[in-house]
Design a protein around this nucleic acid. Structure first.
Lengths: 253, 253
DNA sequence: GAGTGGTCTAGACCACCGC
DNA sequence: CGGTGGTCTAGACCACTCT
């Protein structure tokens, strides 16, 4: 008797808040517009600031909002499509692949990288840093690991430093014939240095694209690219210029 | 004078906590082991429970931990590689593509889907639900939108319902010749129904893979697949069986 | 300096699981 | 039922940006 519990599954406040805010964003706000600050918003919805923030966090994760400390919260533009699968059967650095060489150092790679390269822990590896821009904003950073054995003609003498050295490594790489490659995408959180370069806070969600390049029966290079998950949609198709804008958090059909 | 601020950039507590916990996971714990509960852990580290949870949340996002309400926190196994790019030039449903038909209904799709299908809002669309398992665990759910025009021989009469109807739609799809396809990956948060099927809470981070199938100069089908971001690594390469286990949050080199 | 988002606290209660 | 993680509160202070 009595307890006709139609409210048996009360959805969390932050979830409901997110729904309300999503609808407001769709109907009442335009891209770039700044929202009221968190204290005001929380008061307006009658919740604690922490609860409001939980909703904002998810909306930022979904690419709907952009928050910047000291500035405010703004409505984010639709995610940019970033082509990741077009350079099939081409070495990194070939014919302008949207990446910009930044730096290069020869050092022992992390253990996980050494394992993937199937190389000894003592074998020297060139570590090339590159970055990628889109619409004037940095969208990705990359660490490209190239075993010294893959670029035998490159001596320590004739490689100056910094970007020039990075370009030299990439140039040497073109001499090998690429047999195949291998890609994987997973979710990660930004390291401190990547976060700085991507203009985000450490720990921000990122899409990590790991690519292995095979040549001469070996893993000739390994690329670990870190894309901003909030602003990027990685495209793999034959026509990378399309814009779908599918809502990652869509309402029930 | 005095203030020789070598501590000028104090890293947040939760960040430091995460580092400590990561190292502990690497050295002192094995897969499947259960951690102390959050209240004990927080007390042990001398922080508030909310602060500890912030660290745990990131570790779960990175696939290092698995938390389940009412049960506890356990050390997660390495992410499973899930092949996403092998069915090149093949229709969904062809020759066992790891997906299992669940359901099918004929309804008006969300606006964003209708736009991607370049179909009128009034044109009927078959919506096939499928799910994907790996290692006995559900890893993905999919909504496959097939405009009625793509499967003209399928009448409402001879399609029973549920999984059988889903299979019928997939079977009819094979009659078209697939011209090309298009893929995109982005971060999203799980809808309530997807979350339930993936054994996660609503809002959990997911990788949304949107695939468009082209035939006869049209978009003949649209697939929106939702993968658990904490447990999955999407693989696109020619050899999907490899295991890299690259640490998404790796320490400085 | 004023205003923003980011971090942190010490509590409370709830929803869920397994015994 | 007891124990777990999930939600929520009402504060406080900090780091940052802009003016």
């Amino acid at each position: 008797m009595g307890t006709t519990q139609l409210e048996s599954v009360p959805e969390p406040k932050y979830w409901h808040l997110k729904t309300v805010l999503t609808e407001a964003l769709d109907s009442e706000f335009s891209v770039g517009e700044i929202l009221p600050n968190e204290r005001d918003l929380a008061a307006r919805f009658g919740v604690a600031r922490a609860t409001l923030r939980q909703a904002l966090e998810q909306l930022e994760l979904e690419g709907r909002l952009q928050r910047r400390r000291g500035v405010g919260t703004t409505v984010a533009p639709p995610r940019v499509g970033v082509a990741v699968g077009t350079e099939q059967h081409a070495w990194p650095g070939a014919a302008s692949d949207a990446w910009q060489p930044v730096d290069c150092e020869q050092a022992a790679p992390p253990a996980s990288v050494a394992a993937a390269l199937e190389t000894g822990a003592d074998e020297p590896v060139h570590t090339v840093r590159r970055s990628r821009m889109s619409h004037g904003q940095p969208v990705a950073t990359e660490l490209l690991y190239v075993p010294a054995a893959s670029v035998p003609d490159l001596t320590a003498i004739d490689t100056p430093s910094g970007a020039a050295r990075a370009r030299a490594v990439l140039r040497e790489l073109q001499h090998l014939s690429l047999e195949s490659q291998d890609r994987a995408v997973e979710l990660g959180s930004a390291r401190a240095d990547d976060a700085k370069e991507l203009d985000r806070l450490p720990g921000s969600p990122v899409l990590v694209v790991t690519t292995r390049f095979f040549a001469a029966g070996r893993t000739a290079a390994l690329s670990v690219a870190t894309y901003r998950a909030d602003t990027c949609r990685l495209t793999f198709g034959d026509s990378p210029d399309v814009e779908i804008h599918h809502d990652p958090e869509r309402r029930a059909s």
